[in-house]
């Protein structure tokens, strides 16, 4: 039998310019670009990591935050295992929009039990001195919305980036643990009749 590798889809949502792409870049390539283009549509990349002794493949989905790209990103919410709601601490509007992002996600991802879905909230750009959103405000929002973990990150100086992703993984795995005995996720058999299972090729 093969070692069970989980593929976890984690999606980054939030207003344009809050630093979603920068966070992903920092996490995967450990680089930061001060002049990043706005994302168009949806992009993703995979990262293998070990969390609490478990081998997982993290599939990080970066989306375009700008409103005009809405229709390009929403089809890909489906199948997400975790959603990282991102705002920028130096942009109050991006914080105020968190609720809308959550609603959009739940709607398009077709989440069955929204109350149980693992969201993680990221307040990015903490390296900036002129803050518009306080830590307390953010924490309170998280509390009120479903007790989401909150991380203050900086893609620029790498603060909390890896920690946030690892937390996301933990949340997902914890969720799975609870449902694992109900739905075995890694079985091959779908609608096939038993006799056709022999070989699977090309």
């Amino acid at each position: 039998m093969t070692t069970k590798t989980s593929l976890l889809k984690v999606i980054l949502l939030g207003d344009g310019g809050v630093g979603k792409s920068s966070i992903m870049n920092r996490y995967v390539t450990n680089k930061f670009d001060a002049h990043l283009f706005h994302t168009i549509g949806v992009e993703f990349l995979n990262k293998d990591l070990e969390v609490d002794g478990r081998q997982v493949t993290l599939q990080i989905w970066d989306t375009a935050g700008q409103e005009r790209f809405r229709s390009l990103r929403t089809p890909f919410y489906r199948g997400s295992d975790c959603c990282l709601l991102t705002f920028s601490v130096d942009d109050n509007q991006s914080f105020l929009n968190l609720g809308n992002w959550k609603k959009e996600f739940i709607y398009y991802a077709d989440v069955k039990e929204p109350e149980k879905f693992p969201f993680v909230v990221l307040g990015n750009k903490v390296d900036v001195t002129e803050r518009q959103v306080s830590s307390e405000e953010a924490q309170q929002w998280c509390q009120e919305n479903g007790d989401y973990p909150y991380y203050e990150t900086s893609a620029k100086d790498a603060t909390n980036v890896a920690v946030a992703f690892e937390e996301a993984v933990r949340r997902v795995l914890a969720m799975e643990e609870r449902t694992d005995h109900l739905i075995p996720t890694d079985t091959v058999k779908l609608h096939r009749k038993p006799r056709s299972a022999a070989t699977c090729c090309s």
Partner: peptide, 8 residues
Amino acid sequence: KARVGVRL
């Protein structure tokens, strides 16, 4: 590690 674009 390059990003992969996804679209409908």
